[in-house]
Amino acid sequence: MILAIASGKGGTGKTTVAVNAARVLDSEVLLLDCDVEEPNAHLFLPEGVNKVDAVSIPVPEVDESLCDGCGECGSFCEYHAIVSFGTLPLVFPEMCHGCGGCTMVCPPKAIREVDRRIGVIETVRTGNITLIQGRLDVGVAMAPPLIRAVKARLRDGSPAILDAPPGTSCPVIATLRDVDFVVLVTEPTPFGLHDLKLAVETVRELGIPFGVVINRVGVGDDRVHAYCREEGIPILLEIPDDRRIAEAYSRGELIVEALPEYRDLFRGFIEKTMQGKMNKRV
């Protein structure tokens, strides 16, 4: 069972839900932090990073002695990472998605691929959790290839929880693709509802079953609850607006350890969700 924790709005509690749920599982679990622009799951786990692996994508390099300036590479590239108009091509590695298309369409085979580092994958082992997190290098704007590299660490049959980036753009799609179930974390506020609707549209488009977690219940209003009811979306967990939770969070502590009375709440949520009991299209 591969479960992704996503949201429309940022700061609703994706990581809080992901790390606490991972901790109360009885089994070994892979926790993948796919928010590679700002990975933060490790802040709630005591052990330091055990292992760091660099991740690169292939970008084009032109052999000037072979290039005849035909411009095929430039007309092929959707991302304008290689540009040519009767001259030697200009390469913009920071725009390149690493598809390799330019090397294939080049008639004189003047283009070869060289590695460009985009970030690292860090591994942390702690108790039942193996945390694998991507960390994009500063100045790199190409999150999806690193997210795919993080997801390549998934193991067949092993349960996994993916902490997704916020929003509904390419990095989120790269995270959600091929997961079994999506948990959308929101808060009962107008912003929370607005962005939840965008996230629901996205997940429905991807055809993945999903449910909602409402965090900080007690603030805002009841429109998120009403929306879920109208749309037939299951509410999997409600976390109350408890000041002690915010205090534990600010100290980098897990709710289920600092406030043991919440253990059963998280355990009930994650066991039910991981068993796929909520696994119907909504």
Binding site: G74, Y79, H80, A81, F85, F92, M95
Partner: peptide, 14 residues
Amino acid sequence: AQGAGIQSAQTVAR
């Protein structure tokens, strides 16, 4: 979404 400057430069060159 991206590469507007590159595309505009190509347009002007053409």
